[in-house]
C-alpha cells in the first residue's frame, strides 16, 4: 500500500512538474501559411520578397549550399524570369579555375552556380559569430521541430529579457529559442529592407516572406507533390470503389 501511494504521489509530482515547465516553453505562433494543407501553394510574391530578405539580411551570415541560382526560375518556386535570376547571380563572385595558366580566378556567378556562401569555411563563420556557427538554411524548415511556425516565431521572438534572468555575453534573449537563448542577434527590423515591389516592410511581413522562402527551399517540389498526390488519391479511390463492387459480385454466390 505504501509503495502504491509512493508511486501515486510520484505521478502527481510528474504531472505538476510537466505543467509547471510547460509555461516556460513558448509554443510557436501558427500563422496561416498559404502552403499548408493538401492544396496549399506558395505565394509567388512572398517567395520573391523572401529571397530579397534572405540575400539582404540573412546571407551575410547563413549559407544555402543546396540551392543554385537556377532554382529561382523553376516552377513551384519564386519563378523569377531567367534574366532576373541571371542578374541576381551576377551580383556574387565565385572562384573558378584553374585556367590555362594554372591560376584560380574570380568570376561572376551564373545560373548553374550554388548560392555563394558568406564564409570560406565553418571556422570563419564561427570566428565572426562569437563561436556559434550560423547553420546552413537550405533545409532548416525541415530540420527543426515546428518547421515554418518555429522559424517565423524565432525571428520575431526577441524581447527585453526579464530582470531576474542572467543572459550571457554573445547570446540574446528570445522567447521561442531553446532555454530562451540564441547566439543570433535580432535581425528583423521594420524597414530592414526596401521591397522592390513597394510592399511595406513590417517585421511581420519580412518574417513571413523569408520563412516562406525557406519553406520552399527545404521542399522545392511541394506544389508538384501535392498536385500529383491529389490525382493519385482520386484515381485510387475510384479504383477502390470498382474493386469493392467487383469483389462483392465475385463472392455473391459463396456463403461465408
Amino acid at each position: 500500500m505504501n509503495k502504491f501511494s509512493n508511486i501515486l504521489s510520484f505521478l502527481v509530482l510528474q504531472l505538476f512538474l510537466t505543467t509547471a515547465f510547460a509555461s516556460e516553453i513558448h509554443e510557436p505562433m501558427r500563422p496561416d501559411w498559404s502552403f499548408q494543407g493538401p492544396l496549399g501553394k506558395f505565394k509567388r510574391a512572398d517567395l520573391q520578397r523572401g529571397y530579397q530578405v534572405y540575400t539582404e539580411v540573412c546571407a551575410s551570415c547563413h549559407s544555402m549550399d543546396l540551392l543554385s541560382y537556377r532554382n529561382l526560375t523553376e516552377a513551384g518556386g519564386p519563378e523569377f524570369s531567367k534574366d532576373q535570376a541571371k542578374a541576381m547571380a551576377a551580383m556574387f563572385e565565385v572562384e573558378d579555375g584553374p585556367n590555362a595558366d594554372a591560376e584560380m580566378f574570380m568570376r561572376r556567378a551564373i545560373l548553374s552556380d550554388r548560392f555563394v556562401s558568406p564564409w570560406k569555411n565553418e571556422q570563419e563563420g564561427r570566428i565572426s559569430n562569437g563561436g556559434a556557427y550560423p547553420p546552413d538554411l537550405s533545409v532548416i524548415v525541415k530540420a527543426r521541430a515546428g518547421g515554418a511556425d518555429y522559424i517565423y516565431s524565432l525571428l520575431l521572438g526577441y524581447q527585453e529579457s526579464p530582470k531576474d534572468l542572467i543572459i550571457e555575453d554573445g547570446v540574446y534573449y528570445n522567447i521561442y529559442a531553446k532555454n530562451q537563448r540564441i547566439a543570433m542577434p535580432q535581425v528583423i527590423y521594420e524597414d530592414g529592407v526596401e521591397y522592390t515591389d513597394g510592399t511595406a516592410a513590417t517585421e511581420v511581413q519580412m518574417a513571413n516572406d523569408v520563412t516562406t522562402f525557406l519553406a520552399w527551399a527545404a521542399e522545392p517540389k511541394l506544389e508538384e507533390r501535392k498536385r500529383i498526390g491529389f490525382k493519385v488519391i482520386l484515381y485510387l479511390i475510384i479504383l477502390s470503389f470498382l474493386l469493392y463492387f467487383t469483389n462483392k459480385k465475385i463472392w455473391k454466390d459463396t456463403s461465408h
Binding site: I233, L236, S240
Partner: peptide, 17 residues
C-alpha cells in the same frame, strides 16, 4: 487487391501530403 488499394491510399496520403 481491393485491400491493397485501400492500403495504398493511406500510403499515398503519407507520401504526398
Amino acid at each position: 487487391v481491393f485491400a491493397l488499394v485501400v492500403f495504398i491510399i493511406i500510403f499515398a496520403g503519407f507520401v504526398f501530403f
